[in-house]
């Protein structure tokens, strides 16, 4: 067990490789209750959330979800979040390690007409991910999964437990995240899903596989791939910034950064050989440092090392040859498009 954002969480159950491949080929079940959940209410909810995040919630209907950045006045990323738009409410899902600072920031930057309610402790969150997820979940729920599009959510019950079923995830596979409104019922839900899924090859999966899966899928990890010194354009997340939506926190700075062009770019690297590039390893061209690795792992799907890095903009084009200094050993690498892995549908 490892400590993560104040939670004791399993890094692995049966093994990272086995869990990773189960999610790619069949299904995996994650307890991701460590993710923070903040409910917004009150008459000004819509405007309040619009001011806090960079993406435009007016572009989605109630019942749908959107990935966004929450930035400071300088355009630095405070956190990357998923916002669920409700009817007069919103649920914002945040990173565990950012929970205290995010909630404080949200309360400091909303007016008295907006209720910012941190419901993380009284709720729970499970993720069922993989090509077999729908077949496992379907018989257990009254929610119509066939009609549930990606980034959509619907209230229902699963194995008798009240949840919101959301077609979202952090693995690059089809799958669901189940928001359990009464945390004490999550164990019952976990057991029911595991029992129903085991014959279909479902495995419980830990933080280790969650990280290797999200990295193959090109998904960012806050604190490792970006922080408050990083703007969304550098992080390759400019598509989450809607400068035309009306004023929001960081809009002025982000407009300037977009016009100027970021000083560094987020790039995917494919490595030759099996050594793992890790956070902080130097990326070099002709022996001179040209960037740094943010995340790296061995890709169980591709069979070689993969990494993400910030590099000078001119080096971010796919096909560029670089090297990574892995503990004094030079590993050859090539810039490749993100994501490293995309599921075939």
């Amino acid at each position: 067990m490892v400590e993560f954002g104040g939670f004791d969480m399993p890094l692995q159950y049966s093994g990272i490789r086995e869990e990773h491949l189960a999610v790619r080929q069949r299904a995996g079940l994650f307890d991701i209750s460590h993710m923070g959940r903040v409910r917004f209410g009150g008459d000004h909810t819509g405007a309040a959330v619009q001011r806090l995040v960079t993406n435009d919630l007016e572009r989605i209907e109630p019942g749908r979800a959107m990935y966004s950045m929450m930035c400071n006045d300088q355009g630095g990323i405070i956190d990357d979040v998923v916002v669920y738009r409700g009817l007069g409410t919103a649920l914002v899902v945040i990173n565990a390690a950012c929970r205290d600072k995010d909630v404080a920031w949200m309360r400091d930057h909303t007016d008295g007409g907006t209720v910012v309610d941190d419901i993380s402790d009284q709720t729970a969150l499970l993720a069922l991910q993989g090509p077999g997820a729908e077949r496992i979940l379907g018989p257990l729920t009254d929610a119509d999964l066939e009609k549930l599009r990606p980034f959509s959510t619907v209230d229902g019950t699963v194995a008798g437990v009240d949840v919101a079923v959301s077609r979202t995830g952090y693995t690059g596979e089809d799958g669901f995240e189940l928001y359990v409104w009464t945390a004490s019922q999550s164990e019952r839900l976990w057991d029911a899903l595991l029992e129903a899924g085991t014959p279909a090859g479902l495995l419980p999966a830990g933080l280790g596989a969650r990280d290797t899966l999200r990295l193959e899928a090109g998904l960012r990890l806050y604190g490792q791939d970006m922080d408050e010194e990083t703007d969304p354009f550098s992080a390759g997340l400019g598509w989450t910034v809607k400068l035309d939506k009306g004023d929001f926190i960081g809009a002025g700075a982000l407009r300037d950064i977009k016009k100027r062009g970021p000083e560094r770019r987020f790039a995917g690297l494919g490595l030759e050989g099996r050594a793992i590039a890790r956070h902080g390893h130097r990326v070099c061209v002709d022996g001179r440092q040209a960037g740094a690795v943010t995340s790296g792992t061995y890709s169980f799907t591709l069979g070689h090392g993969i990494a993400t890095a910030y590099v000078s903009p001119e080096l971010a084009e796919p096909g560029t040859r670089l090297t990574v200094d892995i503990r004094g050993t030079t590993a050859a690498a090539e810039v490749v498009p993100l994501p490293f892995y995309r599921r075939s549908t």
């Binding site: 093994g15 490789r17 099996r274 050594a275 793992i276 061995y298 050993t329």
Partner: peptide, 8 residues
């Protein structure tokens, strides 16, 4: 360690 990936 878990699944060994690389050995030097």
């Amino acid at each position: 360690l878990g699944d060994v990936i690389f050995l030097e």
